Simulated assay, not measured.
Amino acid sequence: MKSLDFKAALVSLLLLGVFLGIWFAATQPSGGAAAQSAGGAAGMTAEQIEYQKMMGKDPGSQKTTGFPTLGQMGAAMAKQLSDPFYDNGPNDKGVAIQLGHSLGRVALGFLIACAVAVPLGFVIGMSPLLHKAFDPFIQVLKPISPLAWMPLALYTIKDSSVSGVFVIFICSVWPMLINTAFGVSSVKREWLAVASTLEVRPLRRALRVILPAAAPTILTGMRISMGIAWLVIVAAEMLVGGTGIGYFVWNEWNNLSLTNVIFAILVIGVVGMMLDLMFARLQKMVTYVE
Rank of each mutant, 00 (worst) to 15 (best):
G66W: 02
L154S: 07
L203W: 14
I178N: 05
P212D: 09
Q52D: 12
M226S: 01
M176H: 02
I144V: 14
A38V: 05
S102G: 09
A235Q: 04
G246T: 10
A236K: 06
G40V: 00
P136M: 01
F6A: 15
N88M: 11
A195W: 13
V289M: 06
I157W: 03
L129C: 02
T243M: 14
N88W: 05
R204L: 13
A117Y: 01
T27W: 01
I22Y: 15
H131T: 12
Y86D: 09
P202Q: 06
G43D: 08
V240P: 00
Q62E: 09
L177D: 01
I218E: 11
M238D: 00
L20E: 06
I265K: 03
M226T: 02
L256Q: 10
K7N: 07
V249I: 15
A41K: 15
M238T: 11
P59Y: 10
I124D: 00
I157F: 04
E290N: 13
A33T: 10
A113H: 03
A193C: 09
G74R: 15
A206T: 11
A41N: 09
D276W: 11
N179C: 03
R205M: 15
R208C: 14
A25T: 07
A195T: 05
T64K: 13
V267M: 08
M1C: 12
D92L: 00
P119W: 12
I138N: 04
A34C: 08
L239D: 03
I265T: 14
A41L: 13
S82V: 08
V234K: 07
A115G: 10
L282V: 07
M222P: 02
R281P: 01
